[in-house]
Design a protein around this nucleic acid. Structure first.
Lengths: 161, 161
DNA sequence: TATTGTTATACTCTATAACTATA
DNA sequence: TATAGTTATAGAGTATAACAATA
């Protein structure tokens, strides 16, 4: 079964140029990838506007939340969970350390690894941040019922898990 | 109602460092934004691997598809539909023009605007690309039933529309 | 005055390759 | 050999400010 593109490219197109005519976006809108990306951009926009006070980008906060909830977590573990490359985590960890939100301690069992731990300030920031983000999420999905929101998350997990 | 973070930050954490212990990712996994982003990354990865032959990135292809389906569309209209900033479209349009996938014609009614039109090669590329992407989408969402896939798209639209 | 398109610029994100220290 | 972390680098993606031409 096709993805229901309501219009074929070989059929006669709309008049070439007319400022206010409706655009054919049927193909893009038939894609999970396109719709999910637009939804993410919407949520990220809200995220950034609410977290400017804490100077926290989405990925940065994901890292902080994971460190706060898993003291001693290593860079490798963070990369695995977040789907990041280790080289891209270095600058972020250094930045969080410089801001005194985390501290690094040698890993007790593995001399190659470094355990990442939240400072008191880091824990406090995650505390406040998680509450802000929970509220923001509810707001961003205010068009969904609670059941729909759960369904949405369940279906998304089926794609990437 | 809280977002069901199964663990509070103030409760005793797991042993500080133990290589193979399970990580607490409950907060992130309770977020639509996090799950949607992970799903998007999964689909984009598949997209890029399938479209390398055509040297097409996701946004690039979105632009090409819209131009092919809406000959004469302007940069402004593309920006509105895709949620992009006009300054970021300039280089992409120039690149597509240099690759002879599109041509630019003066807008008939508005001297400020430029109409973007697909070349024969551009139309052909979109034709093949849309089929590739439709197949890729089905593959990426193979864990979902057809009904679930429709539900997923419907719920995502409720967030950003 | 407002809008379209443009240049210049900067920061974030992502990806690769090469290196070190340790396992 | 393999893994954890790092450096350097490059290409996308996204954002702002300022500008010329046109409405």
């Amino acid at each position: 079964m096709p993805l229901s593109p309501e219009k074929d490219l070989d059929s006669d197109p709309a008049p070439a140029t007319s400022p206010t005519r409706d655009l054919d976006t049927s193909f893009l809108e038939s894609l999970v990838g396109y719709n999910a990306r637009r939804a993410v951009l919407q949520i990220i926009e809200l995220f950034i506007s609410r977290m400017t006070d804490h100077d926290m980008r989405p990925v940065q906060f994901s890292v902080m939340s994971l460190i706060a909830r898993n003291p001693g977590i290593t860079s490798r573990q963070l990369c695995d969970v977040l789907g990041m490359m280790s080289s891209n985590l270095v600058a972020m960890v250094r930045s969080l350390e410089k801001r005194k939100l985390i501290i690094r301690k040698p890993h007790p069992n593995d001399g190659r690894a470094t355990g990442l731990h939240p400072t008191r300030a880091g824990t406090a920031l995650v505390h406040v941040g998680e509450q802000t983000i929970s509220a923001l999420e509810i707001e961003a999905t205010s068009g969904l019922t609670s059941a729909e929101r759960k369904t949405l998350i369940r279906l998304l997990k089926k794609i990437y898990l």
